[in-house]
Design a protein around this nucleic acid. Structure first.
Lengths: 402, 402
DNA sequence: GTCGATTTGTTGTCATGCAAAACATATTAG
DNA sequence: CTAATATGTTTTGCATGACAACAAATCGAC
């Protein structure tokens, strides 16, 4: 394969950009198809890959050989599969493809090293005494890079930022809790770490992770709603690809109208979902228990007799249902993945209240929608942020990424 | 290119579509790239095509030659372009690629014959005395086929149905105004007309048409809202591709909550956009003028002193703004295309009321959104329905479609 | 155990589709 | 009229995936 210039960034997702393809593109696409299959199911046999790609045995052999030569995958000759015929070697992703992920938060910046298949290889965190400034975040990023990946190649850096992000430029338009406005985080980090950087909203990272490796696995359209300390983040994906509009600002289901005479929201509007459904109000209704005690307390309240606390639980679930009805009508998701305290609400109180609202969505859409709780735990954002970088790696496996 | 068997249906049901590509795929993709460019801009020069596809001159020459041989395009040697250098022949789509489109409505079934480039070659309609039953629609379809395309090949049939449609199966889940429930319109028409049939919701057809050839041209994410006699239809697309969820039931912005204490909607919920914003209420406020007089009457009312009618106009625009704020937060569109009486409202009263609401959407998304009125007229649904079929033609130009 | 059936790996050959090179042609600028 | 420029045309080369033929490894039947 002829060496090509800096690798054009894979097609800006979604656009049916039917540009022509040369033979290198063909090879690249087939390498990508093979590696993608390994990414989604590590340890696939070469015969599996032949079936999944539809390519010829000899072609798959050559493609895998090239990936082996590049050090991206290995072939495992011990293959005691269960079937007639000559056994097929299993193909495993190596740890050579490594992505650094970053997630700046109020009290700390979290880092992780993630490989193909969404495998988290290492984790670390840099605590912050005060909300980090952009400079603090850059310093934390350098430290995390040095601790997690002091040597060896890094295919890229994926950042899950708690705010509105222009995913094409890596610009953080606003991150309310951090107090950031118009911070070109992507370019800053790219310069600081000397590596390709992808920045996206944390909810966007979350939905991609859940869609590919979590509770949304196998579903087409997936909606993700996360209940956090400071609000409700949301995002949407279809087939593992974000469906969040022109600049990726969409998916903000937390600011759906649920109540005409509702309280003013910090966003400037009134009656948003996240003014009616909030962790703070829930904790208050539960008697100001600490956030760590939320779910056990919810379980106790639900098990006991009706109470004002239970009324608050049901009130919040009711408004969540109102928002979800609109969301189902507009997005027709197959899965609605709830995280954070929203998941705790549903796990302890059930989905009956939500289902009652969803039953009033339009026919068709209401029959597709299923409410589930998030399956990925603490690694959610790391897996999602890594996937944003890995998508480019998968699209062009042999590019060096530099 | 080796003659391939009857062209495997786009996605052989069941088998996960093979992700690998052979050389035939390469050729097909490049033919598709060339034809797509001609589809979007008829009369492109071969040099244009070379630039747009990124392929080599000699390759484009071969590809165009193959399309000419297949009778899909012609080359126009008279090319008085304006620039230095040898003139490049223009490439035009022929009328050999023809799609029959159908749009069943209460009083008539509309038909059209549409070619590449969204060119409407002919129109016809079959009136109905009473709301058409599925059988009536089939009979009308046969008549329209015989009148519009008595001879010659037909690449497919595209149907814009006024109701909820499972676009994958061609099943009309429910069409309230026609009184249909669970009508397998796609298979029925395919059998009746002996041609490949694609069925989709009329709003979905509308957004595709406006996105590719109308007011959404050039924008990525486009939202479409059409105000009709019986409600508000909506849909969304990104890059000309529908973003309407798992089964295509999404985009129903007409049933977004805009008022907690609103009237009950026929959909079963309360306070939907289309219960607050409706043509019937508007016409009533204007003194029961006929629908055909809507826009002139609106213009008169707006020009005159404030009145109760003007108040109703502003009330409706206000609720529309409420819905659009939610939509902007969730979908981050670049264009919001309004059709029907919604367009009339905006044309006569302006977008100030809407803009005030949109200004309260989240930063980022609110700056992307621009409200415009539909640019395509009566041919809207024909162009959109045809595009649904043409997409397959463009993906594999040399397949016969039969 | 041995043999046949089956599946997959391996190797060498072939066909094909795109790019590159070299030449030809048509238009504009001066 | 000449030079510059852009594009068309033709030929050649090469990369790549399919295919065919053979080899190897496993299972099941007897």
């Amino acid at each position: 394969m002829t060496p090509r210039p800096p690798t054009p960034p894979a097609h800006p997702a979604g656009a049916p950009d039917p540009s022509g393809s040369d033979r290198d593109d063909l090879r690249r696409r087939n390498l990508a198809a093979v590696l993608h299959a390994v990414h989604l199911r590590d340890g696939s046999t070469r015969a599996d890959l032949t079936r999944e790609t539809g390519l010829h045995r000899s072609t798959v052999r050559a493609l895998v050989a090239e990936l082996v030569r590049a050090g991206i995958v290995t072939e495992d000759l011990a293959a005691p599969s269960g079937g007639v015929g000559r056994p097929s070697p299993r193909v495993h992703a190596t740890d050579a493809t490594r992505v650094l992920t970053l997630h700046p938060e109020l009290d700390a910046t979290h880092g992780a090293l993630v490989g193909l298949g969404g495998r988290v290889l290492a984790r670390a965190r840099v605590p912050h005494d005060a909300p980090p400034t952009p400079d603090d975040a850059l310093a934390a990023a350098r430290e995390l890079r040095d601790r997690l990946a002091p040597t060896g190649p890094l295919r890229g850096v994926g950042v899950a930022a708690p705010g509105l992000v222009d995913r094409r430029t890596g610009n953080v338009v606003v991150a309310p809790h951090l107090g950031w406005r118009d911070v070109p985080l992507g370019p800053l980090l790219a310069a600081a770490l000397d590596a390709p950087v992808t920045v996206d909203n944390d909810a966007n990272c979350g939905v991609v992770a859940e869609a590919l490796f979590g509770a949304g696995r196998g579903a087409r359209a997936v909606v993700y709603l996360n209940g956090g300390a400071s609000g409700i983040g949301g995002s949407a994906a279809d087939g593992g690809v974000l469906t969040v509009g022109a600049h990726g600002f969409g998916g903000e289901i937390g600011h759906t109208l649920v109540r005409s005479d509702g309280h003013p929201c910090h966003c400037g509007a009134d009656g948003c979902l996240e003014t009616e459904v909030s962790r703070a109000r829930l904790l208050a209704a539960l008697g100001d228990v600490p956030a760590s005690e939320l779910e056990p307390t919810l379980a106790r309240v639900v098990a006991a007799r009706p109470s004002t606390a239970l009324a608050e639980i049901d009130r919040q679930l009711g408004y969540l249902g109102v928002a979800l009805r609109t969301v189902v009508n507009v997005l027709n998701p197959e899965r609605i993945v709830l995280g954070g305290f929203l998941a705790a609400l549903v796990r302890t109180r059930g989905t009956a209240a939500l289902d009652a609202h969803l039953a009033r969505a339009l026919p068709g859409a209401r029959d597709d929608a299923r409410v589930v709780t998030a399956a990925l735990g603490a690694d959610l954002l790391a897996v999602g942020a890594a996937q944003l970088v890995l998508r480019d790696v998968l699209a062009d496996p042999l590019s060096t990424g530099r």
